Computed example of a mutant assay.
Amino acid sequence: MYQRIRDLREDRDLLQKDVAAYLKCTQVCYSNYETGKRDIPTEVLIQLAHLYHTSTDYILGLTDDSAPPIPRKT
């Protein structure tokens, strides 16, 4: 999971400070997410999925399909 969020960030030519600003946290805090020194809260995981237009399952490594989830009809 940690390598995956780093790869997603780098694929979009974003810096850690850019993603940290999006998440409203410090660059050090975000760096700790990427290195696995700090667990990623659920809300942050959801925000990252939105930022990268992918699913939380992809970020968590539960699937290799990076396509965004299909919204459910209510």
Score class of each variant (00 low, 15 high):
23 L>E: 04
36 G>K: 07
63 T>S: 01
12 R>Y: 05
59 I>K: 05
28 V>E: 12
26 T>E: 12
50 H>T: 14
64 D>L: 05
9 R>V: 08
39 D>V: 12
16 Q>G: 07
58 Y>N: 07
62 L>D: 06
23 L>W: 03
38 R>Y: 12
62 L>Y: 15
65 D>K: 03
14 L>F: 14
42 T>N: 12
72 R>W: 09
71 P>V: 12
70 I>K: 14
18 D>I: 02
70 I>S: 11
12 R>H: 10
21 A>Y: 03
32 N>S: 13
47 Q>S: 13
67 A>Y: 09
60 L>W: 09
47 Q>E: 13
37 K>D: 11
14 L>G: 04
6 R>D: 09
41 P>C: 03
57 D>S: 13
3 Q>S: 11
63 T>P: 04
34 E>Q: 05
9 R>M: 05
56 T>Q: 11
69 P>S: 03
14 L>P: 00
14 L>M: 15
63 T>N: 01
73 K>W: 12
45 L>D: 01
12 R>K: 13
32 N>Y: 15
7 D>T: 13
35 T>V: 08
61 G>D: 09
5 I>T: 06
60 L>I: 11
23 L>N: 07
52 Y>D: 00
19 V>K: 02
60 L>D: 05
35 T>P: 09
17 K>G: 00
35 T>C: 10
36 G>C: 06
3 Q>T: 12
53 H>L: 08
19 V>H: 02
68 P>C: 01
24 K>S: 14
66 S>W: 01
24 K>Y: 10
37 K>V: 02
66 S>T: 08
18 D>L: 01
